[in-house]
Design a protein around this nucleic acid. Structure first.
Lengths: 211, 211
DNA sequence: GTACAATATGACTATATAGTCATATGACCG
DNA sequence: CGGTCATATGACTATATAGTCATATTGTAC
């Protein structure tokens, strides 16, 4: 984590550095991001940077932590007044808030997306900790409960579905960037509906032979 | 593309360079891959490298092209004796051959996976061309045909499903690397079955109210 | 206002890297 | 054998980058 010196900084300077870091990671990705460029952009001295952060990784971790917090805040409200036991409604809200976050903070969302695709397992574990595992467990339990209450088919493989949900939320957030399917707000909602429809009903014709 | 000089090389030397490039891209990814390291590893002179390839991008493109060819060859046989009109069987074969390719050539598969996640739209377009679009169209047509023949529900959103299929095949190939769900061959097949079951039947209980 | 601690600074070192180029080596042909 | 063309070579240039450190500046407590 950043050194205390960084948090003692006046807000404008702190924000300046943060914004520059966001710009840098957004434009170049983690691997190619350069501290030299960040200090040049912000006008702070090289030595100062190293008084705020350990190294690039430290800065990256901080940026992602802030993004994580923002994302959580962003979705919290939407999730709060939600039927706690409707899986599909929950999934839908997951997708929608992913998209809304992208709209509100495209660069942050893009950095988070890149992070999800990063090929550095240790770094990912350092940053996300067991959040992914916990979310997975949460969904598995929810699925099992809904099986019992008869809303979800008992044949559904809960761990696979839980994993699929996590993956699809990445899919939605990612594809939102550059795909025809998510062009306008309206189209994005339609695509989400279609996706959820498929997951809910399956693609097989209901009146096909042998059902 | 590589200069003719590269293709004129004796096979062993050509392979040596190719293998070293694979190692490099596998270990460091495109952004961090270094030509200096590749020439050091292979023992060829720096100047020679630049007689074979334009630059790193040129080498990368060549590696991915070879991987693409290998992948196509790999699946071609399996797809050949397949019911041409069974979408789900096709999707299953797509997943299975993805996994089989991963087993046979883990490093190549990993490089291909990284490429899919690469954040360089121009480079991606240069390499894949319109292959993705064509595959998408193919699936859309197949879906529409199966709607007409009554095997797929008419309510299914064909473009979304086609896109979903493409994405899921990446999902399967990627998760295969490090996930519990795909540990053993047997488990991998079970996971694929579960996935396809969900896509086929949907997760909603069939006897739920209002069906 | 003085002493002390925290912070800021940027020149400097060490290290990587991409890409070039003049020269050397080999291969093939007449 | 001699000449010409393709190929090989690695030292060299130019440029980036990470990270350090002695020194300067600022802030704060008394």
């Amino acid at each position: 984590m950043p050194h205390p010196t960084f948090f003692n900084l006046p807000a404008d300077k702190r924000n300046l550095i943060f914004e520059a870091a966001v710009e840098e990671f957004y434009e170049f990705g983690y691997a190619k991001a350069s501290i030299s460029r960040i200090v040049a952009k912000t006008g702070i001295a090289k030595g100062s940077f190293y008084q705020y952060f350990e190294d690039k990784k430290d800065l990256y971790k901080h940026v992602l932590e802030v993004i994580g917090r923002q994302k959580t805040e962003f979705s919290a409200a939407a999730f709060h007044d939600l039927e706690r036991n409707d899986l599909l409604q929950m999934v839908r809200e997951l997708f929608v808030s992913g998209i809304r976050f992208y709209r509100a903070h495209p660069k942050l969302a893009s950095i988070a997306g890149d992070f999800a695709k990063l090929r550095e397992p240790e770094l990912k574990r350092e940053i996300t900790g067991d959040a992914a595992a916990k979310s997975n467990e949460f969904f598995i339990r929810l699925i099992e409960r809904q099986k019992e209450s008869g809303r979800i088919a008992p044949d559904v493989d809960a761990p696979v579905l839980a994993d699929l949900i996590a993956f699809l939320s990445v899919y939605v957030a990612e594809h939102y960037a550059d795909q025809a399917l998510f062009g306008s707000e309206k189209q994005a909602m339609k695509t989400i509906d279609s996706l959820i429809w498929i997951v809910e009903n399956g693609i097989a014709a209901t009146n096909r032979p042998g059902r």
